Amino acid sequence: MRIGRPARRAAGSAAPVRRGGGRLSVAVVLPLLVAGLVAAVTAGIAVGSVAVSPADTWGIMLHRVVPGWVEVSWPATHERIVLSSRLPRVLLGVVAGAGLALVGMVLQALVRNPLADPSLLGVSSGATLGAVLVVVSGVGLFGVYSLPLSAFLGALVALVTVYLLARTGGRTGSTRLVLSGVVVGQVFLSASSLLIMTSGDPHASTAVTRWTLGGLGGTTWQTLTLPSAVVVLLLAALAARTRSLNLLLAGEEAATTMGLAVGRFRTEMFLLTALVTGVIVAVSGVIGFVGLMMPHIARLLVGADHRRALPVATLLGAVFLVLADLASRTLASPEELPVGILTALSGAPFFLWLMHRESRGRRGRP
């Protein structure tokens, strides 16, 4: 039977995972992930150079929320450690992990490419360049928001550039997309390094090193406000547009036929994902592969329907980054490893597996 052009194009670019319901029920997966997140947060707060028991950890937090509800039986130093140092850091891990996972899932749907990821597509590098421009120039027209705003603009420029370079003949090939992302990312990182070298500011060099390696150290309660707001904004926007994301799985022509304004929707999502990536990079640096791995794991668990996969990917990203940050603090104690190194060590084999899987799937297509 001869396959028509739209159908053939959709078949040739479909996501590599099945669009069925997945192997597990969401009613089973979500409670397990919530329990896993609670356990990961507890471990992230309790474990460190000064150990705090899980009972004291939750007692301290409950006492802060509802004073007098629990009896104070812990040292004052433990309370300062939990509330001032570890809890903000762990919460940033939750927010950043969830945000990066959401961004990865959206990008993979928008460009219909299983290898899409903020770091692989150069988006994180663009955000880094934007942040470096503010640090080196010292320009702060928007006060505390100058750094996140500049990072957002850099991420947006990088994302649009990569997409335009990779798109040819109305399609975006996997190899071309990854190569475009690598090239654009290296150009932006090189520009960041050049700015640092010519600035002569050692503090700027330290900041750039932190961004390029990724880390959650030094997080304060003030640091949490903006990333939490933009991640909640993205999650709310995606919850209202899951049908649109599902339509893109069938291809642009089919989505347009079913009433989706693909161009406008893609623009809206590009702006949101660039905003979230820029803000996360501004506060935590470049943390790669979270946005690549978590969406695929979510789809393998519950299927490709975004109504089910989005909440699963969100929780997976939060749990993964909290545990990765915990490992970064404990594996080489008293030294602290950059969390971006650990996520890269986990993500690189996953990326190679995806490349092999996609290549094998392409060879098997009629």
Rank of each mutant, 00 (worst) to 15 (best):
T225E: 14
L226V: 15
L226C: 04
P227I: 13
P227D: 01
P227E: 03
S228D: 08
A229S: 15
A229L: 15
A229Q: 13
V230P: 02
V230Q: 02
V230H: 04
V231I: 11
V232H: 12
L233N: 10
L233Q: 13
L233Y: 06
L235M: 12
L235H: 13
A236R: 10
A236Q: 11
A236P: 14
A236L: 13
A237C: 11
A237H: 13
A239T: 15
A240I: 10
R241P: 07
T242Y: 00
R243M: 04
R243W: 04
S244L: 00
L245Q: 01
L245Y: 00
N246C: 06
N246P: 03
N246M: 06
L247A: 04
L247I: 09
L248M: 04
L248G: 02
L248P: 04
L249W: 08
A250V: 12
G251H: 01
G251K: 05
E252P: 03
E252N: 14
A254T: 14
A254W: 13
A255C: 02
A255K: 05
A255Q: 07
A255R: 05
T256F: 08
T257P: 00
T257N: 11
L260Y: 02
A261T: 14
V262R: 03
R264H: 11
R266A: 10
E268P: 07
E268T: 15
F270C: 10
F270Y: 15
L271F: 07
L271H: 03
L271M: 07
T273I: 04
T273L: 09
T273S: 02
V276E: 10
V276C: 14
G278D: 06
V279H: 12
I280K: 12
I280H: 14
V281E: 02
V281T: 10
A282N: 07
S284K: 12
G285L: 01
G285N: 00
I287N: 02
I287K: 06
G288P: 15
G288L: 13
F289M: 05
M293D: 02
P295A: 04
P295W: 03
H296P: 00
A298D: 09
A298M: 05
